[in-house]
Design a protein around this nucleic acid. Structure first.
Lengths: 170, 170
DNA sequence: AATAGAAATGTAATAAGGTAACACGCGTTG
DNA sequence: CAACGCGTGTTACCTTATTACATTTCTATT
């Protein structure tokens, strides 16, 4: 049964992996994005806004060219830089993430100040969950500290099966 | 994969970040590779062996096309699949790693020991260190377990400055 | 030794991902 | 009104990776 939606759910099961009111999800993120850009000074132009909406339509990571196709059919430019620039803008302003493993992008569901999540990617349904990764990063920082290496950015991405697909497989 | 793990002679500063007898380093890995393949049944053919040697020549991650150029000038095929297949073989047999963040490959310096290391990549000198990542993975597994997600593979890569370049910068 | 089948190697062709360089239009602002 | 920065669009090109298929080499039998 669909779970009731709480205002600020500290999801023990990320929303990506469970049925939820996705419309609300989108709206919330778009609102937050506007706020955030007001603070930071960035402009949420039509292409950029549409790009974010496209990313938000599913809990999936999308390739730049997939986004581009969508933009092109909606009357925006059809050359790669159009998508890359919009995506880069979103990433720079903390509104989207870039997933290295997939060479793909996803909307950021929790735009916030210092925000460096880990990702869980379901290989069966492509669902993508964004987890607070503080403990993981701490562990990594510990290791690195011993070596004298200074971490500037770290990528933590896991591929596997989400709860839904685990059940489906059984 | 479930292999007896010898006590790891873990350098507190990975060899990649410090001067060391690299010739010995190469020889050791090549020997271990041969052993490992004898067990597993893989064949270390000329292209494959040469590919591993090329990766071993530096503590860096190399692009597939960089490897391919080397192979081609040495008389092997000059089409991409030549390099990709050899690299894929090495990765499958635990003799090399694929770095997602860089779209690149590196020789595995500890074949058979820690099959799932974390990587530290120096953005200044491209040095690459391979660290046992058990604690990091444990932390990640913890997070994932709460969600019911089953991790099959995880990528943990950090970019920053190695000790040598930190000093150089100062 | 002969040979069928599997494994490995090679090729060409193309897909997918990404960047550089430049032109135009639009709002600010001096 | 310039002059400017910024955003958007374009063309052209580069890098990375895969598909499909032909050929050679190994290996395990007879």
């Amino acid at each position: 049964m669909p779970e009731p939606l709480e205002p600020e759910p500290l999801e023990s099961v990320p929303a990506a992996f469970a049925p939820h009111d996705h419309r609300a999800c989108e709206t919330r993120v778009l609102d937050e994005a506007a706020d955030r850009l007001a603070e930071l000074g960035g402009r949420l132009t039509p292409v950029r806004r549409r790009t974010l909406e496209i990313l938000l339509e599913s809990h999936r990571a999308m390739g730049a060219y997939e986004v581009l196709d969508r933009l092109a059919t909606e009357g925006f430019g059809r050359q790669p830089p159009v998508a890359y620039r919009a995506l880069e803008f979103l990433v720079e302003h903390g509104l989207a993430h870039r997933l290295q493993r997939l060479n793909a992008f996803a909307a950021c569901l929790h735009p916030g100040r210092d925000h460096a999540p880990a990702f869980l990617i379901c290989r069966a349904c492509d669902a993508l969950a964004e987890l607070p990764a503080a403990p993981v990063r701490a562990a990594l920082a510990d290791l690195a500290a011993d070596t004298g290496f200074i971490i500037e950015r770290a990528t933590i991405e896991a591929v596997g099966l989400c709860p839904v697909c685990v059940k489906a497989a059984a």
